[in-house]
Design a protein around this nucleic acid. Structure first.
Lengths: 294, 294
DNA sequence: CCACCCCATAAGGATTACTTATCTTTCAAT
DNA sequence: ATTGAAAGATAAGTAATCCTTATGGGGTGG
């Protein structure tokens, strides 16, 4: 019932006004003069009123004067929307939400993100750190675009791309008898006071699982765990990345037998398309982290 | 360089979202489902990003979620502009500026405009009263859309349509010797103290012109003129419409010889198209005033 | 497993948009 | 006046677009 304006017609009208004539306007929009004449006429017919004075020099009718500011405003908003949308579409602008496990957040991401924001200065980033389970949950629920974590469990809603492996080792005080060893097997740990933590599940299903089952302590908080170890109150196992790199009192000894690794990968929702900015981030992370063990 | 959105595509996208699917949306916009599929796909290709999730149930991608509110806003403004513009185009809405000589403004226009605003309640009107010369000038300069006046002088910029004639007569105090006459010729006025006014030029070029030339008084203000006449200070000539209808002290005697009339007509700018609302007004005035002497 | 619903794809036709070529008007210069 | 240049209108042919009918494929629920 109501007619529908075409953005192009509006642009033609406005250009004719601004350039002062159909010929000049035609050049400006890279069309021929008849194209504009006909397009404008078609618009006039649909509205039932002339926009330009018939005889003479492309002057606006009163009706045209009424229309012009509205056309300008509409066209202005159109162009603004296009700019925003294509900026978003080609990944120049946007915001990426990432969730990772704490060790990755603190050891891997900082230099990586510093490079990223230099290469894509108009993209902004949020980085959450959560445990592996909650990272997957955030990705699945769409709270974040991407997760970097070990896979909690296979999940049809999640799309996992392996990035690198993280060796599990034993962490103890440097005065501990085991501290001088360059590698350890699980039997050597029998009799040690083993403190479990959130990553201990990695040992389940290996020869070392009974160590975990017999452990009486569980500490989830990393700060508390470190403090316990620094007090010489026991030993624990950690993936290497989760071991505080520059700690002067603790040492990390790779576990040889069994050879346990934490598989770290990029996780995204399988049933959802990534936002353009997140696609950029995905490519960047794959390029920088794929098969690089640290 | 930047792509150009089409209003219709935006409407399709929004309808698909609101209706929850392509089929339902197609019904709503009276198109077939493939038409929407293809139109949306074409938009997606031009933006380089999908708006709807590919597999599944017409869900928005994150990019689509980004676009949607902007599309809605743009479409909303479009529809608003269309509504305004067509309302203006078909004369439902608008404002008409009219200028008339004072006699027409006070004697002709009031009942006429009362009818008009009843028939066209969404149209608003400005009515200026000025002397004949200035009415023409306002029309020529575009300050008003229409003028109702006698033509000051033939003017190529003005388009004159005759409406009716207004007989000139002599106005004097009812106690004046001439007051009982039913008509007067110019000789009868010789020796009378004639007060000139703005309409006296109507007598120029007739046998009565020497009366005007010999007149010593000129009063432009109608109130002052009436006061002078009521004081019995002389006589004057006025078109009948300019004579205050219900004045108890003055009387109007038609001038027979010469038979002078003021030609009243509708004036508009010849080189400009009337605004739609003004076209409505023009038609109304012609219908109501054409050849009706009062 | 089948039927159904929904969207995607393909092919053909109708409409719309644009181009080149030509005409008309206007304004100005001589 | 006559002519020339410039601007817009018109006409016809072509390219692009939009939409339709017909059909294919992938899920979901009975």
């Amino acid at each position: 019932m109501l007619p529908e304006l075409k953005i192009q017609q509006l642009r033609y009208v406005i250009t004719v006004v601004d350039e002062g004539g159909f010929n000049a306007a035609a050049k400006r929009v890279h069309r021929t003069q008849p194209a504009l004449s006909m397009a404008v006429r078609e618009l006039e017919q649909r509205l039932g009123q002339d926009i330009f004075e018939r005889g003479g020099k492309s002057q606006l009718t009163p009706f045209g004067q009424f229309c012009l500011p509205r056309f300008r405003e509409l066209l202005g908003q159109h162009d603004r929307v296009v700019k925003d949308v294509v900026g978003q579409a080609d990944g120049r602008q946007g915001h990426v939400h990432i969730a990772t496990v704490p060790s990755v957040a603190s050891r891997i991401m900082p230099p990586l993100l510093a490079d990223f924001i230099e290469r894509f200065p108009d993209l902004t980033i949020s980085l959450h750190d959560e445990n592996a389970h909650y990272v997957c949950q955030m990705v699945a629920q769409g709270e974040v675009d991407l997760g970097i974590t070990s896979l909690w469990q296979s999940d049809d809603d999640l799309d996992y791309t392996h990035l690198f492996e993280d060796k599990v080792g034993v962490v103890c005080h440097r005065s501990h008898p085991l501290a001088s060893r360059s590698s350890i097997d699980w039997q050597s740990l029998q009799g040690e006071k083993l403190i479990r933590n959130g990553t201990s599940r990695l040992l389940m299903g290996t020869e070392a699982s009974e160590l975990v089952e017999n452990s009486a302590f569980y500490i989830s908080n990393m700060i508390s765990l470190i403090a316990m170890l620094e007090a010489g109150a026991g030993v624990t196992t950690l993936p290497q990345l989760a071991f505080p790199e520059h700690n002067a009192n603790l040492c990390f000894i790779p576990l040889q037998e069994p050879d346990v690794v934490r598989r770290i990968g990029l996780v995204k929702a399988s049933n959802r398309t990534l936002a353009p900015a997140a696609q950029i981030m995905e490519g960047f992370l794959l390029e920088r982290l794929k098969d690089e063990p640290e």
